[in-house]
Design a protein around this nucleic acid. Structure first.
Lengths: 205, 205
DNA sequence: CACAATTATGAGCAAATATTCAGCTCTTGA
DNA sequence: TCAAGAGCTGAATATTTGCTCATAATTGTG
């Protein structure tokens, strides 16, 4: 289990359609295998088997196991970033309640697919410094945006907007993660209601 | 990396003082190594090296690697359980604000030592069914206690006390974890203030 | 001091796992 | 149709790592 990456690039860039298809198969299989067995027990051979290809093919598109994980997390971060950008660029809903609702719903949606896998990805993110930094940046962006929002909004009564913003973002991200996860996941709609209520009452003072 | 535990008992029970000292050294070293490298990369050889003993000695006191993790988590759970029991048995503070403050402070205190290690322990807890169940039980106890508290308290205005209790417990546990962790940990006192404010305003409606 | 019990050592075994590569099959384009 | 290159295979290799055990050192005891 070498942690340093000798080979950075995969051997080949896919040029034919079937190659790209194989790449996708590998990623899909890896998502399932990691979700089912965890990262350590999710062996590359198992991934190849599940993808219905040989282990050799896997190593033609990914330089090593870590790279597969990195790509999965990158995809998720790309999705999250895109969705967040869309919201933050567009016009703000009038009330903070509605703003928080948008935030919470966004987070819930991005976790509904596979909370298990997502938790795994984030746990294993420290394996790549780059990904860690990207996650940190994304979080800081969200916190910054929230802080500005809190500062400029007439309904808001909290004094320390930086701390409040960090608390809000952490609460949304983590509680959604946890409460939607097995066992006994909470109903998503009810969670949204209560979470929005909590955050709104908090910042209104 | 055998996941089934052939040998359940360590080879020897410590009888001399130096033996007990070695045991402690191993646990301390393991805490550091796990925190630094993660569970998978925290090899038993690394632990032994850090403890300044030989790998053979390690296996005289712990039947396998998992047992070391289990002991570390058990210790933490014992502390947490004891502290929680003390609070829940004693007389309740009058206002929910004060109740929440006690909860938050308890959580903060139990995480100040080493948030990194703790996160790791909890992530890896699934390795032991017994520990998983124990953590689940502890959580359910906390939620149940909180739900009863919310139901019986005159200040409280939330309708669905079960959901509210789960949200409150998850928020405290997770946000404290996250916001006290590196990088850029929040000031513990300020976190306490804001968290208590948020929870109190929430349940007061 | 002698001798038994306890504790410590660390080279090396065994199993698991990541990764390679020589040779094969399939696609493409002229 | 048929090279040439793209893609695929999987047995073999290279590493990693949990763990054992024969042996040595240390400690307690009469």
């Amino acid at each position: 289990m070498p942690s340093d990456q000798r080979r950075i690039q995969p051997r080949k860039q896919p040029r034919q359609v079937r190659a790209e298809l194989t790449r996708q198969r590998i990623l899909t299989a890896a998502a399932h295998v990691f979700a089912d067995h965890g990262y350590a027990a999710g062996t590359t051979n198992r991934i190849a088997e599940r993808a219905g290809i040989s282990i050799g093919s896997l190593y033609q598109y990914f330089p090593n196991k870590d790279a597969i994980l990195a790509e999965l997390l990158t995809r998720h971060l790309d999705d999250g970033t895109a969705a967040a950008a869309k919201v933050m660029t567009g016009p703000l809903p009038g009330s903070i309640e509605e703003v928080f609702r948008v935030f919470v719903r966004l987070t819930v949606e991005s976790h509904l697919d596979d909370p298990h896998l997502l938790r795994m990805l984030i746990e294993q993110a420290p394996r790549s410094t780059e990904l860690l930094e990207r996650m940190g940046r994304l979080k800081r962006t969200m916190v910054g945006y929230t802080r500005d929002l809190l500062e400029g909004h007439p309904e808001v009564r909290v004094a320390d907007t930086e701390t409040a913003a960090r608390l809000v973002i952490a609460t949304i991200e983590l509680a959604v993660h946890d409460l939607l996860a097995e066992p006994d996941p909470i109903d998503a709609r009810r969670l949204e209601e209560e979470m929005v209520a909590m955050l709104t009452r908090y910042v209104r003072g």
